[in-house]
Design a binder for these strands. Structure first.
Lengths: 139, 139
DNA sequence: GTAACTGCAAAATATTTGCATCCTT
DNA sequence: AAGGATGCAAATATTTTGCAGTTAC
């Protein structure tokens, strides 16, 4: 994993520092979206809160991660997938938040359906959040 | 409008107080979703910040308004439409946020398309936020 | 060596809670 | 009259900013 995260940082022209590696590792081993709070709690060595803020901002700006909408005010974040690059992003996939366990993950198989918008509207980005009960919790 | 808001409050079994009327008026005359900050700024007489928090919570709990997702962490709110009642809610409509003017509004004409989810997922609520340039700003 | 990154302190914002008072029913 | 709603003060929590020291390249 070390190799993967270092590679990612290089690809996106970011210096490989410990904080960035740690946060990136966390994203890599989590298959769900993380909030700022999640990151602070779950990261290995305790990072300064400010560093987390700044790292997330940097990752966002460079396009390493993207925002995942949430219904509680506190945005989450997830790694961009292979389809994304520095040049352009393609995450018109669906996010599913389980109301039981609270986890939000990407339903990579589900595409956002095409929609016809009223005249004059230009679309830049689409975010679809479905809330309900996930597979694990509906047992 | 006085009559409308008083009626609404009665229907939802809420006491008609000045704060509630004011906030409800604001929602009624705004055709776009409002954040807590918007409300504090735009309401006629200046209400205590705490009252705004509590009023929004009450309106939400009773089902007078619903959350509108936002990409900046700070949830917005909008009135539920006729299709909603105390019994059940139906706002599977689409929200559009203009990246120019920042306004978010409901595209009442656009329905959320049906989607096939993987086995085991139960859907409770769907939120679709499209970002781009609105009709007014794309001139 | 230099620019970029980090951590600490502190400022600025945002949200929640407790309580006395006032208002709607 | 009684329970609910408000406003103020204060406690918490969150996010941003400045700056000095450290680190990656």
């Amino acid at each position: 994993m070390e190799a993967v995260s270092n590679r990612l940082l290089k690809d996106f022209r970011l210096r490989t520092t410990q904080s960035r590696q740690e946060i990136l590792h966390l994203f890599l081993r989590s298959d769900y979206a993380l909030s700022h709070g999640d990151i602070e709690k779950e990261v290995e060595s305790s990072l300064d809160r400010v560093t987390v803020y700044r790292t997330l901002k940097t990752f966002l700006d460079k396009g390493l991660i993207h925002k995942v909408l949430d219904d509680e005010g506190s945005l989450k974040y997830a790694l961009c997938n292979e389809a994304c690059s520095v040049a352009g992003h393609h995450h018109n996939h669906v996010h599913f938040k389980c109301v039981e366990c609270g986890q939000t993950n990407c339903l990579t198989d589900v595409e956002v359906p095409a929609m016809r918008l009223p005249k004059g509207y230009k679309v830049k980005e689409i975010n679809l959040l479905i809330q309900g009960v996930c597979e694990a919790c509906s047992g």
